[in-house]
């Protein structure tokens, strides 16, 4: 299949206002449907890299294309439409803790609604059904009316995934999704991401600390060190010794 990559980085640099280099000359492409894991020490720029894709962070120079289109000129509505097709999962789940699971999940649908309808919570029955289906996919349908802070960490992360599914995303960015979870729930969450990747063909990009997990789930591993790509191999070519290079201090 000759297809343009769903995401491509070309000579991307990011320098923070205080002069710190966030990203340095990033060049790589992500084909449609890949499960990509980005590894590296904390502070290596993984989180920054991820957030440049949906423009939660701006880059200093270079170009990022999503579905073949440069995302640089987007603003206002077009930027929100870009973000709509890119779901995002966070380390701290980022739910409204005192709201119900239903409200949290439905809030993933905001960009399909005019402002006044969404802020009054007037979501359609179809979307409410969609929310139930999304929760079923993360096996939490019975928690629909529970308050988010009544759930365990792993359950909250699954709610966050259901919320992202409401966007009908083509890409899911997961920023350290399991850093606050125990090993058992870690597996549940990673399995769900893998299933979304395989069953729905969603391109998934995950930041991880753990090399072992990366090797278990990834199609391809990219290693970052001090904002630079120091490693980029398909899973078949990955060896432990190579990966350890990523974690060496410069």
């Amino acid at each position: 299949m000759d297809k343009t990559p769903i995401i491509s980085f070309k000579n991307v640099n990011k320098v923070y206002a205080n002069g710190t280099v966030g990203l340095k000359n990033i060049n790589f492409e992500i084909p449609q449907g890949e499960f990509l894991v980005v590894v590296g020490l904390s502070g290596a720029g993984k989180s920054t890299l991820l957030r440049t894709i949906n423009r939660m962070h701006e880059i200093t120079s270079g170009e990022i294309r999503v579905e073949g289109e440069s995302i640089k000129p987007y603003k206002g509505r077009s930027l929100r439409l870009l973000r709509r097709k890119i779901g995002m999962i966070f380390q701290n789940f980022n739910l409204v803790k005192r709201s119900s699971v239903a409200k949290n999940v439905l809030s993933g649908r905001v960009s399909y609604y005019p402002t006044w309808k969404s802020i009054l919570g007037l979501f359609s029955t179809t979307d409410k059904q969609k929310a139930v289906q999304a929760l079923q996919r993360v096996s939490l349908a019975e928690k629909l009316y529970a308050r988010a802070d009544e759930l365990s960490g792993g359950q909250q992360q699954r709610v966050a995934i259901a919320r992202t599914l409401m966007q009908d995303p083509k890409i899911i960015l997961a920023d350290e999704p399991i850093a606050s979870l125990d090993p058992l729930t870690t597996k549940t969450v990673m399995d769900i991401l893998k299933r979304l990747n395989q069953e729905d063909g969603i391109t998934v990009i995950v930041n991880l600390h753990s090399v072992a997990l990366a090797r278990e789930y990834a199609d391809r591993i990219v290693g970052l060190r001090a904002g630079e790509v120091v490693y980029d191999e398909p899973i078949a070519a990955v060896t432990e010794a190579d990966l350890n290079r990523v974690y060496q201090t410069v």
Partner: peptide, 21 residues
Amino acid sequence: DRGADEAITSAGGNSAQIFML
């Protein structure tokens, strides 16, 4: 905690939606 704000932003919400939701 600005987390929920970030989540709605990343889902494509506008500023009124971020504030209200």
